[in-house]
């Protein structure tokens, strides 16, 4: 009877240990994926594309091409960096 109780307790301890190890691995995996995702997000946040302009010297065409020239801003990416650096 005592042996059965002892085995049950031992199995319970092993089960808890295995569960703790599994939780630890899942946590570490999620952290790694989080870091990778942050890097990938950074890589995909590209500035707006800059197209070639035509050879036309027509005034309306020039106006349209000038309007389509977008300076863009990296502010969102830098704000994300600032936010992430708070926990360093």
């Amino acid at each position: 009877m005592n042996n059965k109780k002892g085995i049950t307790a031992l199995l319970l301890v092993i089960f808890v240990l295995v569960a703790l190890i599994a939780i630890y691995f899942v946590y570490m995996l999620s952290q790694t994926q989080g870091d990778t995702m942050m890097i990938e997000d950074d890589m995909t946040a590209n500035p707006p594309a800059v197209e070639e302009v035509s050879d036309s010297t027509d005034v309306d065409t020039i106006e349209a091409e000038l309007e389509a020239t977008i300076t863009g801003s990296p502010s969102e990416e830098i704000e994300l960096m600032e936010s992430d650096a708070q926990s360093l």
């Binding site: 890097i39 950074d42 890589m43 590209n46 500035p47 707006p48 800059v50 197209e51 070639e52 302009v53 091409e65 020239t69 977008i70 300076t71 863009g72 990296p74 990416e77 830098i78 960096m81």
Partner: peptide, 21 residues
């Protein structure tokens, strides 16, 4: 990596913008 990536991307982009202008 992010300093290098953001600086590289935006300096290239702004060079393209200035070429276009």
């Amino acid at each position: 990596n992010r300093f290098v990536s953001i600086n590289g991307k935006w300096t290239s982009h702004w060079t393209d913008v200035l070429n276009r202008l």
